[in-house]
Amino acid sequence: MRAEEIVYPTPAGLYCAPGDFHIDPLRPVPRALVTHGHSDHARPGHGAVLATRQTLDIMAIRYGEGFTATRQVAEGPLRIGGVTVSFHPAGHVLGSAQILIAPDDGPRILVSGDYCRTPNPVCAPWEPVACDVFITEATFGLPIFRHPDPMAEVARLLSSMAEFPERPHLLGAYALGKAQRLIALVRAAGYEAPIAIHGALKRLCDYHIGQGVDLGPLVPVGDAQLVLAPPSAFATPWVQQFRDPVLSGASGWMTVRARARQRGVELPLVISDHADWPQLTATIRDLAPEEVWITHGAEDGLLRWCAIEGIPARPLRLIGYGGEPE
């Protein structure tokens, strides 16, 4: 059986025919395998969901306990129809996984979801998985995206806080993964004072703490010098309670300074939970698959690199991913 007969795009998303399931489907389906809890990959309303325990917990926090009719924790290799599937850490956010599809007859296909090889204190590290076909994201699939050391970016934040102690620093951070990672990085840099968090971050921060992630003292928004909030809060009256704040944002997109200016970000921090260009190309080299399928991102840049390297590759143009802030 050829790879194209095992896994292929449908209007609902990526479909595995011999297993009769979708991976990160865009609309409700009878059976879904979910790589992680971001809403462009994890959506409610499926008949059954198979995911890591932490991803299932996160979906319940975000969508309610009734987000699916039935749920199953992915533990060890599982037989589904004519394929065996296994989940492997992706290093993206808490509970994130790559999914390996091993058919009885045909190539092993690894669906990466979103992944990152930079060490992340709030989730398990990325794990290399042998495969014949590698389906990779390409969110930052252009050579300009070369993310610096996250601790160096955190040092810039703490330096600004020391230089402007009278100004509250408002750090825009997505509620799942990015906010908790930033807090953990700031703590690792030696910052011990209470950190204020917007109410929209509390439930997921509490969940991370319950999973053993040490975030230190977190308080409601008040007099703390460092305040984390969803980036969308900066465009609401909520921000008006702060006098002369330093607006900061942490994302791989902060590499593009025009984006930072458009968002009114005074202190852009380049901290990403996705693979950058060197990691994308290194991963393809390390896994050495027979073929690469590239999706949701700058497919053309990575396709060109694969062509130069003599690696068979094709675009897998799935619409609807990347809908949440990085």
Rank of each mutant, 00 (worst) to 15 (best):
L26G: 13
P168S: 02
V83A: 01
L176W: 11
P28F: 06
I23P: 06
A193I: 04
R27Q: 14
I195G: 00
E75I: 14
Y174D: 09
A235K: 13
G322A: 05
D40N: 12
F87Y: 12
E266V: 13
I99M: 05
R203C: 08
R203I: 15
V133L: 10
G13A: 02
A188W: 07
A3F: 09
I209F: 01
E166C: 05
P165Q: 08
F242R: 08
V292T: 06
L50S: 03
A17H: 08
H38D: 10
Y8M: 09
D273L: 15
T283W: 01
A313S: 12
A313C: 07
I101P: 00
G190V: 13
F242Q: 07
A74T: 10
E309C: 13
E290D: 15
A307R: 15
R187Q: 08
H169F: 12
A307K: 14
Q241G: 11
T281N: 00
S251H: 03
G113W: 02
D104G: 14
A196Q: 04
P217K: 11
P278M: 07
G47M: 09
E324Y: 12
T68Y: 00
F164A: 13
G47E: 06
R117P: 04
V270Q: 04
V49W: 00
E75N: 05
L280I: 15
G212F: 04
D104E: 14
H198D: 12
N120Y: 03
G190C: 09
W305N: 06
E5S: 14
C131W: 04
A42H: 01
D286W: 05
S159M: 10
V7E: 01
R261A: 15
I308Q: 11
R108D: 07
E290H: 15
C131G: 04
E75G: 02
H147T: 13
I99D: 00
V265W: 02
I61M: 11
G264M: 09
A155Q: 10
G76D: 01
P30T: 05
A102M: 10
D114K: 08
S248Y: 03
L157N: 05
C116R: 09
P77G: 00
Q279K: 05
T136D: 03
A162C: 07
L287E: 04
S96P: 07
D132H: 11
L56P: 03
P128N: 06
V49N: 00
V239I: 15
P231D: 03
G322L: 08
V265D: 00
P168W: 03
D276S: 08
W305C: 09
R156L: 14
A298N: 14
V246D: 00
L56N: 01
A155L: 10
L56A: 03
E163D: 14
G64Y: 04
P245F: 03
H38S: 09
G210Y: 09
A48K: 14
L176C: 08
L100G: 05
C16F: 09
V221G: 01
R243L: 11
A69F: 05
L269C: 10
I135L: 15
G177E: 03
L33R: 05
D149C: 13
P143K: 07
A173F: 10
L316H: 05
A179L: 12
G81M: 03
S232Y: 07
A275W: 03
I6P: 02
G82R: 11
P150I: 09
I61L: 15
F21E: 04
E4C: 05
A152H: 12
I135F: 09
